[in-house]
Nucleic acid binder design. Structure first.
Lengths: 231, 231
DNA sequence: TAAAATAATTAGTCTTATCTAATTTATGTT
DNA sequence: AACATAAATTAGATAAGACTAATTATTTTA
């Protein structure tokens, strides 16, 4: 018995539960996306959980030294927590490339499958997949893929809403990767690399009038604009 | 709230928990491998679980109409349960081919990773992977891969222990896929297709004296022989 | 067939991860 | 500063899936 548990302990070293991994990833993404301090409520929202559950898990992650949390500065990943979170994101984005390029999925189908695949825990899997895919730099949504050494290329941060009327840009990446957003983009004929000109900002509700690939004007919401990262 | 649960219900339709899937697979494999009736104890052993836990789960699977269980005839998969179990096995074996052929893993490394990958639940994933791999018939351990329509090619069933002294055969598949067994095979220079001659059966403990690829004699145990499927 | 051994089951406990409801702590506004 | 609102936390409940220990059935074997 004692022996059996020792064994389990050894083979599980460095591995986390599905939930723990999802919390790490969520905290990492919040840290990337916003400059605000990361609160239990924000994490709860991003995971679709109750804040009370988040507080419990934060305690657990603190015990495991994956995060540090105090009310003043909010939640922060430890060196180890950051390393683990980056690896999960790396796996997610590599699997997305695989699903699109090798299995022929569309870009609005791959996110949810990659959410499952990213938790496969073999030590060399990510690196082998990386090599198999010929070391892609970006995933199909334009997000940079963290390197094997843990380095993360700087993600795009300027959005459509940052443009001034008359400016032209190219779509570099999308922030929201839900299928509803991506299908909307499909309908508008927008993909990575598409040229967009901001024609006008409607001051009433910050709607954006844009021209896609030089074609006739279309109006989109502020929320839409915030989810288009540009070059 | 009510709305949210309805949504969950819809997208989860036809999906099972990790545990449920592992029980289904285990029952399926026991049914394939032996003609004995499938008992809670046998399932417990195959999963490394306590029989009490198995009884609990059998109740649950019965409620979901995935199995039928009575003491007389043991556990049997329902039509639905069989369909689901076959799909899991299909996914497992396809992923094994992928890991070996595309990612360069060795045959003693792939089983455990495929145990995780087989639970990825997207509806079209198995078929896409199948196509990507060019519809392989056997996995790297020689096990037949169930077809998209649910048909399962007949697995090999004759083992080394069924031979008579002097008989020659070729290795068609292995029953045990643990890395300890596969590494042992590697050391003996045995793979799928290797020619083996049974030189002598030791009646004391049913050890087998064999000649591998025509080379000098080696002695292996009965347990070893039972795990080598031949053509 | 009776005793012994084995298998199946029940009852109760534990852990993980979630929830709701209630309470405490912060923040913001007048 | 006092109050109102929002956020964080605690306490207690629940469900899944595992466990141990105790009990009941069923086989074997003498």
């Amino acid at each position: 018995m004692r022996c059996f548990y020792l064994f389990l302990c050894v083979i599980k070293l460095g591995m986390y539960t599905l939930s723990e991994e999802n919390y790490l990833k969520s905290i990492y993404r919040l840290a990337q996306q916003t400059d605000f301090k990361i609160t239990p409520t924000a994490i709860a929202e991003s995971l679709g959980n109750n804040p009370a559950s988040v507080v419990d898990m934060l305690r657990k992650l603190t015990e495991k030294q994956l995060i540090a949390y105090d009310k003043k500065s909010g939640v922060r990943l430890s060196a180890q927590g950051l390393k683990d979170a980056v690896l999960i994101v790396r796996r997610h984005r590599l699997w997305e490339v695989f699903l699109l390029e090798k299995l022929g999925y569309h870009w609005d189908e791959i996110h949810d499958i990659a959410e499952e695949l990213e938790h496969i825990s073999d030590a060399t899997l990510a690196d082998r997949l990386d090599k198999f895919l010929d070391f892609p730099e970006y995933d199909p949504h334009g997000d940079p893929i963290p390197k094997a050494n843990g380095k993360v290329p700087k993600p795009y941060s300027v959005t459509l809403t940052n443009l001034k009327a008359g400016d032209t840009c190219r779509v570099a990446a999308v922030r929201d990767t839900s299928s509803s957003f991506l299908q909307y983009l499909q309908k508008l004929d927008i993909g990575i690399g598409t040229r967009i000109q901001l024609v006008e900002k409607i001051s009433f509700d910050n709607s954006l009038v844009i021209s896609i690939s030089g074609k006739e004007n279309t109006t989109v919401s502020q929320k839409f604009g915030e989810n288009i990262l540009i070059d």
